[in-house]
Nucleic acid binder design. Structure first.
Lengths: 206, 206
DNA sequence: GTCTATAATTCGATAGAC
DNA sequence: GTCTATCGAATTATAGAC
């Protein structure tokens, strides 16, 4: 875990994450990115290719690990002996997005806001992040269908969609006055996860 | 209810609503608007002033009536003799957004998508719509606090926020394959409202 | 009110020197 | 890898004729 000084490529990704989070894809200019990053404009083309490729790199760095963790927790849940609960599934879905924040302590709010923002972008930009998340959504929908066989798949699908919408909102609003998620301490993340799960689980059972 | 032929100003607003809904504020150019509307570029400046002023006009036309209806339903609820229920409050909050769709029968999906999109825009554009909605949110929060005195105001605040996030998602996703809201028939709107209320009410009570 | 023409910027991307 | 310089295209907004 050596803290190597950020090279040009990393510096660009870090600044781009913040500007994409605050102003969206269209509202962020490469000139703003390189200006705040203290690097040359041509460095973006050299290291990434295009603005969209830079965006993909930011998604890959900050969103992809969250999906991997979600799928891991879901598989662990299925390996267990106890029956799977709605609360367990929602926890596996929600927790990784919140836990990841404690790993980037200094920029945790920015990461949260980017993860929310990238899922509210207009098309075709939103699809860049959605392609990462869709596999996980399908897996969670399958498990939900197994433990809630009385509900139709389309019903479970829009319910899961609303759960994700709530999570996205929590991420986007992170840090604002009345936000649910205010700190990145482990205890606070644990508690925020539980509050979200408790709010959403009853409706899931219908 | 005469169907007067759309003049230039109305034509611009109608096309702008759709493009803002699909591509967001930054992703929509005035040239795209006037091109699809079949009017001259300078007409935007003449009738509205600036791109942001055009956006305000679209919000005023499609979002403001929804807020007015929400506040009206909430006041009617408080005039009634029966005790106010969580379901009643959430219905007053959710129904107007859905009902308005049956009034613009031909463009109902576009209106839904715009009402959702305008609340996920990056700042400072999002504030344009939020200023319309904030008064209503405060009023709903006050009533919720009265009938749920055991929960802290900050807790009720983020719960209400998640309810609104779910509503925004339903609007944004209207018309897509697995969307909750698929039609603009009165019966479907009634049923969609009930499903949303039933999904969200239990968590509201904690 | 509607139009043409254009001002004044800004954008993403790249060629080419070092 | 990093830089300067710039191309070509696109943007909002407006001046001014009709």
């Amino acid at each position: 875990m050596t803290d190597s000084p950020p090279n040009t490529k990393e510096q660009i990704i870090m600044v781009a994450e913040r500007l994409f989070a605050e102003h969206g894809f269209d509202g962020t200019t490469l000139r703003n990115v390189v200006s705040e990053a203290g690097v040359n404009l041509a460095a973006v083309s050299y290291h990434f290719g295009s603005k969209e490729d830079l965006y993909r790199a930011v998604v890959a760095k900050y969103a992809r690990p969250v999906v991997d963790q979600e799928l891991y927790l879901l598989s662990e849940l299925q390996k267990g002996l106890e029956p799977i609960s709605v609360e367990g599934i929602l926890t596996a879905l929600i927790k990784p997005s919140l836990v990841i924040l404690s790993q980037h302590a200094d920029s945790h709010l920015v990461t949260a806001q980017f993860m929310g923002r990238c899922r509210t972008e207009p098309e075709p930009i939103q699809s860049i992040a959605n392609e990462e998340y869709d596999a996980a959504s399908q897996a969670f929908l399958d498990v939900l269908q197994r433990i809630l066989p009385d509900q139709s798949r389309s019903q479970l699908s829009w319910k899961l969609d609303l759960v994700i919408a709530a999570l996205i909102r929590v991420l986007t609003e992170a840090g604002k006055p009345f936000a649910l998620l205010k700190s990145n301490s482990s205890s606070d993340i644990e508690e925020t996860t539980q509050q979200l799960v408790r709010f959403l689980s009853p409706g899931m059972r219908s």
